[in-house]
Design a protein around this nucleic acid. Structure first.
Length: 692
DNA sequence: TTTAGGG
DNA sequence: CCCTAAA
């Protein structure tokens, strides 16, 4: 099914990985699961997935009329969402609950066609106004649930919870907490009479989508006895435009729903207590778990230097200009702002999507995720896709919109050095690596107006002069490597110091960002490189430090450029970003950096000398300059090296390690193992002697 | 923090 | 590469 294949669209700025199929290794599935536990994938994320899925399904479903008027908002409201991948082995089961703001923001398009029903559930809900008490509402939503029950390979259940009347006058729909506990939640608040903020995919109207409201929202939401859980970033979802500066992490989750949820929570599928620094989180049982661990903290700290850029990008202020302004460029086409009225917006939108590249589509996607960004990007992005206009204008005074189209971005200049004797395959890999490094290193967008960089992110487009009445031809965008996020691997000096001269690794990658002229890496004298290395890493670290004290709005910018597969705008529009996860200290997996032969050689050499079991010394000796190699890495590498050496060459993968090295690995390993055994024996002997 | 070992 | 018990 389409969905399965496209599950990896990005929301929230990072990618939802594929759920590894059964055809993949069990290990990958495990790690997928694990990762998601650790990522604190929250209800919003799940909802995002679900919403995306539903929308995609809708899209793929034979629809008689796909106009915006035929789409319904419904269903995943005040509810728990159970989402289950139906793999052959059903390896992953996720239960999530949207909370408060989700109720106001997550509306999944109904899919009457898919269900083969003449009338959508939403419609039913909407039309039945006879009873609007909570109980009725709950049962209705449950009705929706059953209709959503089977859905290709996606199962979606919707549940509502009854409130425990623990507060006078505040009973009502209580959102149960499950996975949502893993994202930050605020104390329950009473939802006022404001209608839900809809993240509508097709509403270009400037008013809330009452038409599509779930059971006639006034009846529900006007009741002041409706108690929902609200997130502190509700405002953002509902269109408030102030940039986020608060930093709230987990608060004790509010009240809890039903047994079923608990059961699932208790299952091992989800770790309820995220390992967030300085945070306390509660699971649905309400017990608090201190989640600050010294050890964790250490790791976090350790990782903070080498965080995967996607995670890190939120930390960087936009203030410092790129070292290489205009290192990237893009083709840019501005559309006449008046082209395409709202009326044909959705149509033209998808057309545009089909044509334009991933980058621009992501910008569009990005736009849908950033309703809180009141600054330039917002309007700009909003212009990228007209389908988002309505969503925003529901909450804001009408603006003139600047319609921009970015046709493509070019990858910045890459310097690649490779011996003539290398194969084309290696060249390809080399370039690929360099590109990956650049993209993975974090990018941000620069805006150029008439050749001048616009640095003030807080100016409005109008103030800056980017308005639809102006000639937009003078407007340009560039991708800039984010200096603070460039992975250190880009510095050729990363290689072990000893091996720099004769490194067989021909790859001299150096991003424009590094600001270091990367020549002479292979020329011989290592000394200068060492200096360079110092600088390179130093500068890297300097700017990369203090992941918490920078403003957030920057992150939104660089985020727009994260390479995410093109996605239907319609689907994305419904998927709000989970602002929280950007703030949350989600620990990202480090970028994978395969050991080069040179590094292996250095490692072998050091281990030969120092033995196994002294990894810190090995690190100091041979990898002191490679900040991204920890002693644990070296130990792990040694482990795999031993393993590699023992298996047949046909089973080996990756860059082949010379047999000679592998032989040395085995020899050294055997030798030091023996040494260790001897040591132990001596110890034991001594002890027995003492005892006697 | 470092080591060791499972995942 | 991650995680963590144990030293």
């Amino acid at each position: 099914m389409v969905l399965q294949k496209r599950l990896d669209y990005g929301f929230n700025g990072y990618q939802v990985p594929h759920m590894p199929r059964a055809t993949r290794s069990a290990r990958r599935r495990r790690s997928f699961k694990k990762k998601h536990e650790e990522d604190q994938m929250c209800a919003f994320d799940l909802l995002a997935i679900v919403a995306g899925k539903l929308l995609l399904d809708k899209e793929s479903a034979p629809s008689s009329s796909n106009t915006s008027a035929d789409k319904y908002q419904c269903a995943v409201v005040n509810s728990a969402v159970k989402y289950e991948w139906q793999d052959e082995e059903k390896p992953l089961k996720v239960e999530a609950c949207d909370q408060g703001s989700a109720a106001r923001n997550f509306f999944v398009s109904d899919l009457p066609q898919v269900h083969g029903q003449g009338r959508s559930s939403a419609e039913k809900l909407r039309n039945d106004k006879s009873k609007n008490d909570i109980g009725t509402f709950a049962s209705k939503v449950e009705g929706v649930s059953s209709e959503y029950g089977e859905f290709g390979d996606c199962k979606l259940e919707v549940e509502t919870k009854r409130a425990v009347k623990d507060e006078p006058g505040k009973s009502g729909v209580v959102l149960s907490s499950t996975a949502a506990d893993m994202c930050s939640l605020d104390d329950p608040v009473v939802l006022d009479a404001k209608p839900p903020a809809l993240a509508s995919l097709d509403s270009c109207a400037k008013v809330p989508l009452c038409r599509n409201h779930i059971p006639n929202s006034p009846n529900l939401t006007d009741r002041d006895d409706v108690n929902v859980v609200s997130r502190d970033d509700d405002d953002n979802y509902s269109g408030c435009t102030h940039p986020i500066t608060k930093k709230k992490f987990f608060r004790p989750a509010p009240r809890i729903g039903d047994r079923r949820i608990r059961k699932i929570l208790a299952s091992k599928y989800w770790k309820v207590a995220p390992k967030f620094k300085d945070a306390t989180v509660s699971n649905s049982y309400g017990d608090l778990k201190p989640v600050f661990h010294k050890r964790k903290n250490y790791y976090r700290q350790q990782r903070s230097e080498r965080l995967y850029p996607f995670k890190k990008r939120k930390h960087y202020a936009y203030s410092s200009p790129s070292k290489l302004d205009g290192g990237l460029s893009c083709e840019f086409v501005s559309d006449s702002p008046r082209k395409g009225s709202n009326g044909d917006a959705s149509g033209s939108c998808s057309r545009m999507h089909g044509v334009t590249g991933a980058s621009s589509s992501f910008v569009a996607q990005h736009a849908s995720f950033q309703p809180w960004d009141s600054h330039g990007m917002r309007t700009f992005n909003g212009g990228a896709s007209s389908s988002f206009v309505g969503q925003r204008s529901s909450f804001q005074p009408r603006d003139c919109h600047v319609k921009l189209r970015i046709k493509s971005f070019r990858v910045p200049e890459l310097l690649v050095e490779i011996p003539e004797s290398s194969t084309v395959g290696l060249l390809k890999r080399t370039v690929m690596e360099a590109v990956t490094a650049i993209l993975g290193g974090g990018l941000r967008v620069g805006v150029l107006l008439q050749g001048k960089k616009v640095r003030d992110d807080n100016k409005t487009l109008l103030q800056t002069g980017i308005s639809h009445t102006n000639q937009l031809d003078s407007l340009g965008f560039c991708l800039e490597p984010n200096p603070s996020q460039t992975p250190p691997s880009l510095c050729p000096e990363d290689s072990p110091f000893l091996l720099q001269c004769d490194t067989p690794d021909p790859l001299s990658r150096c991003p424009p960002t590094a600001g270091v002229v990367c020549q002479g890496i292979c020329t011989g004298s290592p000394e200068p490189h060492l200096n360079n290395l110092g600088k390179c890493i130093e500068s890297d670290r300097d700017s990369a430090s203090s992941p918490t004290d920078t403003s957030m709005d920057q992150s939104t910018n660089s985020k727009a450029l994260v390479a995410v597969p093109a996605m239907k705008v319609e689907a994305l529009a419904v998927v709000p970003a989970h602002q929280k996860s950007k703030q949350s200290e989600i620990v990202q997996r480090r970028i994978r950096r395969p050991f080069s032969v040179a590094e292996v050689e250095a490692l072998v050499q050091a281990v030969e000398k120092l033995g196994t079991g002294r990894w810190r010394d090995v690190k100091l000796r041979a990898f002191d300059n490679a900040k991204h190699r920890t002693y644990v890495d070296l130990k792990d590498k040694w482990k795999t090296l031993v393993h590699t050496a023992r298996i047949s060459p046909q089973q080996r993968r990756g860059e082949p390690v010379p047999q000679e090295l592998l032989d040395r690995v085995l020899t050294a390993h055997a030798y030091w193992s023996q040494q260790q055994a001897n040591q132990q024996f001596k110890h034991q002997h001594a002890e027995t002697c003492l005892l006697l």
